[in-house]
Amino acid sequence: MFDVIFLQFLNGLDKGAAYALIALGLTLVFGTLGVVNFAHGALFMLGAFCAVVVRKVLTMETITVDPNQLSPWGTPLEVRTPLVQAWLGDFGAVLVNYSVPFSILLTIPVMLVVGIALERGIIKHFYRRPHAEQILVTFGLAIVAQEIIKSIFGPNSIPQPMPTDLRGTADIGAWLGMQAGVITYPIWRLVYFLFAAVVIGAVFAFLQFTTFGMVVRAGMADRETVGLLGINIDRRFTIMFGLAAVVAGMAGVMYTPILPPNYHIGMDFLVLSFVVVVVGGMGSLPGAVAAGFLLGILQSFASMTQVKALVPGIDQIIIYLVAVVILLVRPRGLFGRRGVMEA
């Protein structure tokens, strides 16, 4: 029995990690700028499509028709030469193989620029407007972003292969001294979890141990006073928005091998991650992370056959059910601070 539970726990980790990353970004934006950002899911999607672009560029090839060789159908053979391999040799092959992790290098600057442009261009005009209008404008932006992606990449999902070394499963049970072959777990999901843990740790460390982070935290607590002390808090908050976009984008990139990206992947995650944020408590970073993992793991337990036999359909609604219960019992969410968006 223990191994079954442990396995479900592991299964919940990768999804929980994705929820936690998106919710972390959402909470960063809400905690600093006080903006309810419905376009955050679109940022996740944009990140995922950075991986698609990188892979497309890396796998570009020249096609030459060689009349001397014949294909099995008797027509002249088309010789395809992948450009990257041709130029860079073995290193190129490694690059193509590891295109997904490699795309993070592109994702970070792209998402930073997108995030800062979004904040400076549109969202800064909405600080003083009601939350309803912030929801509406970011919702509109999300539609625009996903329609642009759809018109470029088409409506279908584009599968991204994971690096060959990281395919297959890890026998975690054997590592822990249990019987071999009982608890196995796809390596890439393990990688995703570790990656998420590193990113979350980095964000927390950044906020906790750097001067910049200290100023931002001070600004989250009392924006006006920090401004009066002569610190340009708005600029720092803009950068935090960019950072949140980067976190969402990286979450999207690394998730592409698990779930092939399409244009509405962001919306699918957005609804869930809003639920996560609210469960964790608006504006609480540890709350967002904890609630992300909690809901991911709960969802994984709810999709066990035994549980489904007990309560049919529970796997479809568990997250929303938990959200409703928590909101009604603990209006601030799990870790919400007193007085922040409390109603």
Binding site: L328, M341, A343
Partner: peptide
């Protein structure tokens, strides 16, 4: 309606998504 503002929006969203998911599965 026990909550207002964004919490109300999320609650209604959660209920609607629940109905939608259940309409596709259990119901």
């Amino acid at each position: 309606l026990r909550r207002s503002g964004i919490y109300f929006s999320i609650l209604t969203l959660a209920f609607a998504q629940m109905s939608y998911n259940m309409a596709y599965s259990v119901l």
